[in-house]
């Protein structure tokens, strides 16, 4: 029990980071993390897979976030990207403008691409782990990842790579 909670605690910083990147809102992100932890605690006996906790927690948080978005859409509360304060992004200082631009670009990605991108690049998960968390085949994961990266490069004004051969 104590071991489980200690293990859980060790995962909280990564969960906060992932939630922050998904929502770009401190309070909403921490709400998600709290819900995720409560769910993990109450279900540990039932659903906890053997092996490391981290992928399981990411899967719970991903699903909670999806549910939140669905119910927010049902309640007709569209989030205006420009209106939402962006506390996760450092104050615009010289050299940080590119980061703010990147944050906005990530925000425009479809959710499934954003999830794939964040799990692999931000959280450093292996493809197999990320695919399992999102419950998709490996090929689908790589396809989403590739499209997300290409979209970001277009949106952040990075020079197009004419010699990048895309398959499919």
């Amino acid at each position: 029990m104590v071991d489980f909670l200690d293990e859980l605690e060790a995962c909280v910083p990564a969960l906060r980071r992932y939630a922050r990147a998904l929502t770009r809102n401190i309070d909403h992100a921490d709400d998600l993390v709290q819900d995720c932890l409560v769910r993990a605690i109450s279900r540990r006996g039932l659903f906890r897979p053997r092996g490391p906790l981290r992928p399981w927690l990411f899967a719970i948080l991903t699903n909670l976030h999806r549910n939140d978005r669905r119910s927010a859409r049902r309640q007709g509360a569209p989030l205006s990207l420009d209106a939402v304060p962006d506390p996760a992004v450092p104050a615009p200082q010289p050299g940080h403008m590119a980061l703010a631009e990147l944050a906005r670009a990530i925000e425009t990605l479809p959710l499934d691409q954003k999830e794939a991108l964040l799990l692999v690049t931000l959280e450093g998960l292996a493809y197999a782990e990320a695919a399992a968390i999102l419950d998709i085949p490996l090929g689908t994961l790589m396809s989403r990842l590739g499209r997300a990266r290409a979209a970001l490069r277009g949106l952040t004004g990075a020079p197009a790579e004419p010699h990048l051969r895309t398959v499919k």
Partner: peptide
């Protein structure tokens, strides 16, 4: 750049409400 953007969130002190214990 993505990590630079969001890594700070993982370094923040944990609020009490996120303590698993």
């Amino acid at each position: 750049a993505i990590r630079a953007l969001y890594d700070p969130a993982a370094a923040e002190p944990l609020p009490a409400r996120l303590s698993p214990h």
